[in-house]
Design a protein around this nucleic acid. Structure first.
Length: 499
DNA sequence: ACCTGCGGGCTCA
DNA sequence: TGAGCCCGCAGGT
């Protein structure tokens, strides 16, 4: 039975955190009185206790791309984060967003995934490894004990969120359903020359061969990177996309009823913020309608169409979490990049925009020698305050950046908003901020913000660059976030012709 | 094809 | 010894 709202709405008071235990303890808390609601995006040094009946917990699911890691303990399942796949050139989509693909769990599949070119700029795709745990990937531990599933996370993800697992699964299942009805209409359509090869003036996709000459399975795999049922980038009725429940807990679970749309063959990712899209309902004038007319314009590799714009991990929550005295053994910081050579990231350090030394970024930062691991030195005071989401393009203002990112955070990364009474984002934010007693204010346009007064402890370290720069660089999706705000304030207007 | 869990084995501190 | 990683295998979807 889940804990009451109050408990879960407070990271500290989440039931798992109220009890003192460690995943490695010989004896786990017996007969837990309460269970936490499942957290799809656990971040920070958190612990949860789930019911053994919780399906997602049973499957050890996570929004993060976690791969199994052998810890030589049959009773404790350990998983480490794979990070996120991005374009090596960090190319911006027309709306300013960036690729944030979910790394394949399978090593082979992941290599294959990285060998693909970014269809947006034809650069290589690169894997940003997670180094959120003292230079190592964030690890999650699962342990079944009695009627409880104990979950413990160690580390703070230092990369954007990938596409969630549930999104991927839902998209694939949706794709399966669509593929059956796809082939016939497509076959007919390819006989119509007017419907082919005229989607992209840059030739990015217009050379895509007809599906008849393309393995359907390939198409399926590629399209599988499209999102779950977001039809043709149009939002026929934005209200249909408003999450009927918390977007965090329901990511991918709540599938837009795409079947009802007239042309459901092409699905584009549902950006995180699509949950909140409440703009003018009719977007039938979307430029993407042209794409929808012709499935032959489906890019060979549509992985890139993952507009995870706002999934940057700002995590005031995590900062708060890190201020706790974690029961785990502190881990001294380790050199980050140097030890990552085996991950093939050295080159990325030199080439990858995310690692650009001239562009201070969390991905680049290496814990200074002698600096305690981040989880052990947190004294971060997260000052929640209202901040107005700016409605301007690509600003260098850290405040604007952070506010945007936190808009997302507030709506999506709060592991506390899993209750019907918190389904309303403002309510969720309010609850999230409640530990500090500070309540965010609603921003015109429906964007709720929580702005941390301080950067992360890492950023606060002497060796780290100015926090504003870091924010500015790392939050590469801000452009699209702002664009979204623009759109939200006006109308949903996707105009990426590359689609 | 891919995900997932398991487990052997290696390196390093 | 513990942590982290790599790899292969098997079962499932």
């Amino acid at each position: 039975m889940p804990t009451d709202t109050r408990q879960d709405s407070d990271p500290v008071l989440s039931y798992g955190m109220t009890l003192s235990w460690d995943i490695n303890d010989p004896q786990m808390p017996q007969e837990p009185a309460h269970f936490d609601h499942f957290q799809e995006w656990p971040d920070g040094y958190v612990r949860f206790i789930y019911s053994s009946q919780e399906k997602k917990a049973q499957r050890h699911l996570s929004g993060w791309a976690m791969r199994n890691t052998n810890n030589h303990n049959g009773h404790i399942l350990k998983k480490s984060c794979l990070g996120v796949v991005v374009c090596s050139s960090a190319c911006a989509l027309q709306d300013g967003s960036h690729l944030q693909l979910r790394p394949a769990i399978c090593d082979k599949a992941r290599l294959k995934q990285q060998n693909k070119a970014c269809p947006n700029c034809h650069s290589a795709l690169e894997l940003i490894p997670c180094r959120g745990h003292s230079g190592y990937p964030v690890t999650n531990f699962w342990r079944l004990d009695g009627n409880a599933i104990f979950f413990q996370a160690k580390g703070v993800h230092d990369h954007p969120r990938p596409e969630s697992k549930s999104e991927t699964e839902a998209r694939r299942s949706a794709l399966k359903r669509q593929m059956s009805s796809f082939y016939q209409p497509q076959k007919k359509r390819t006989q119509d020359p007017e419907t082919r090869g005229n989607q992209d003036s840059n030739g990015h996709f217009n050379s895509t061969p007809p599906l008849e000459s393309t393995k359907l399975s390939d198409v399926a795999n590629d399209i599988s990177c499209l999102v779950t049922g977001q039809p043709c980038l149009s939002f026929p009725n934005s209200s249909a996309y408003r999450a009927p429940c918390d977007p965090n807990s329901c990511q991918g679970d709540i599938m837009p009823p795409f079947q009802k749309y007239s042309n459901p063959r092409i699905y584009l990712p549902r950006p995180p913020w699509s949950y909140e899209l409440a703009g003018p309902g009719d977007t039938s004038s979307s430029p993407y309608s042209s794409l929808c007319k012709d499935s032959s314009s489906i890019p060979n590799d549509t992985d890139w169409i993952h507009l995870n714009t706002l999934q940057y991990d700002i995590n005031p929550y995590s900062s708060y979490e890190r201020s706790l005295d974690f029961t785990g053994k502190p881990t001294l910081g380790k050199p980050g990049l140097g030890e990552r050579a085996d991950h093939g990231q050295c080159q990325a350090v030199a080439m990858h925009p995310y690692y650009n030394p001239e562009l201070p970024c969390r991905y680049l930062t290496t814990p200074p020698a002698g600096t305690p691991a981040l989880q052990t030195v947190i004294t971060t005071t997260v000052s929640y305050q209202a901040y107005q989401c700016p409605a301007l393009k690509h600003s260098n203002s850290i405040q604007e950046v952070s506010s945007i990112a936190n808009c997302n955070y507030a709506s999506e990364n709060l592991p506390v908003s899993f209750y019907p009474e918190t389904l309303d984002p403002p309510a969720a934010v309010t609850q999230a901020a409640s530990p500090t007693g500070r309540t965010p204010l609603k921003v015109p346009g429906g964007c709720w913000t929580i702005r941390p007064a301080l950067a992360f402890p890492q950023e606060a370290a002497p060796s780290r660059m100015d926090g504003a720069d870091a924010w500015d660089v790392c939050l590469s999706g801000v452009g699209s976030a702002i664009s979204y705000l623009d759109r939200a304030g006006q109308s949903i207007n996707f105009d990426n012709e590359d689609f």
